[in-house]
Structure formats: structure tokens, C-alpha cells
Amino acid sequence: MSDILGALGQAWSRLLLYPGGLSAVLMVLIVARLRGIPLATVGPFTLLDLLPSLGVITLLPLTPAAPFAYGLDVPTALLMLLWPSFRRAARERIAPQQMLEWYLPLLIAATALVSVTTTLDLSGLLRWPAEPLRQLCFLLGVLAWIAALPPVTSLQSNLAGACSEVGLLLIGVLPLIAGLNTLPITREIPSLILVPAMLIVAVMAASGACNLSLPARYLLAGIALLVSGFPVR
């Protein structure tokens, strides 16, 4: 138990400053403003919807955050980020067929990404592969992930939805950060600038993907999954 308390004690900057706390609130407010989401008062129920997404952002393996021994994996992060839309879907009994259309491309993209990393651990997304085919698959996986987000995030147009969107976009950005860190030019850019810059790129890409048709999303995710299945010597 002392190791957990020790880890939590050392993670105060993660909790208060970056990537959780202040920086998370800032990112959520910016995304909410871009999406035109009104900044309503946070009550107990909104807080209940906000908490899981904030928890995921706090525990993301982003540099230069303080190291934390107990990281998350993709399924857990997905579940926690989808919690607000999940609760709404259950409460309003949204048609499962509709839910499937929204979530399936995202799950296929996630499958493509974890197939490349061979681990469900989120930190695996920070390991940029050496083989060109794997790199292509990683990029396709990221594109498919970001393209799959608009229908999922449009389900919840409040602060909790914006918080989920930030978390999902940051997960999509992790492989891109890993890829950029291998380039000599971008390696010099401090992570505190690189992460928000990549987040803005991802927000713009997600906005651009709003007009994509459902078959296009499936096609992109399907190609990423197929490429991830090719064996690499």
C-alpha cells in the first residue's frame, strides 16, 4: 500500500498542473469554445460525467509529465472516455444500431493501433516502430482514430463531452508525438509546446473529418486494420 501512496504523493504535479489539473481544464475550455459548447455550472451530476475523462487525461503517458507507475491501457481509457455518452445512451435508450455506427470505426481503429504495438498499454502508443510498413499502419490507425471521433463526440454537447473529446484526441496524438520525436528537427521542440500544437492539429483534422461519410470511416479503419495484420520480418 505504501508504494501506491508514494506514487500518488509524487504525482501531485500530474494531478494539479500537467497533464491533468490546470492544463486539462484549459484544453477542455478551448475545445468547448471551439465547439460552441456553453460553459454551464458544474453540478454533482456533470462532475460525475467529467471525472472519468479527467482521470484518463491525468494518467496519459505524456512528456514531460511526472512519471507515474500505474498507467492505463486502451480498453480502460476508452471505457472511461466514453462514459458520458454511454450513460446518456443507456438513459435515453438510444438505438443500438445507431450506437454501433458511431462506435465501430473507433473500435476498429483502436484494434489497428494495438495490433501494431502488441500491447494494450497506452505507453505502447509512444513506441514508434522501426519498419516503414508498421509506421504506415500507425499513421493510418491515427487517421482512422481521428476520423472516427466526430460522431462519437457529437453525442454529448456539454463540458463532459468536450473533456472526452480532449482525452480521445490526446490518445490519437500519442503516436504522432512519438513519430515526431524521431525527427531531428522536431526533437528540439519542447514537449510542452509540441503536445498542444499536435492537439490543435488533431482538433482541426477532426473538424475536417466531420463531413466524412460512414463508409469512408469504415474504409479508413478497415485499411488500417488490414495493414496492421501484415507480418513484418
Binding site: I4, A7, L8, L15, L16, G20, G21, V42, L47, L50, L51, P52, L54, G55, T58, L59, Y70, G71, L72, D73, P75, T76, T118, T119, L120, D121
Partner: peptide
């Protein structure tokens, strides 16, 4: 996995403590 590398992680208790801390902090601010 077979090579004893982490394939997946589920920090249930840590996650709940962390959510409790964030919730308490947010509640105080509100």
C-alpha cells in the same frame, strides 16, 4: 505476455483513489 512484458494494466484501486482526489478537488473549487 510470454516474455513477461506488460500486455495490459488495470490499476483499479489507484484509479478510484485518483478519481476521488480529482472529484474532491473539483468539489472544493466549485
Amino acid at each position: 505476455d510470454a516474455g513477461s512484458h506488460p500486455a495490459a494494466t488495470a490499476p483499479g484501486l489507484v484509479l478510484l483513489i485518483m478519481l476521488g482526489l480529482i472529484g474532491a478537488l473539483a468539489w472544493v473549487i466549485i
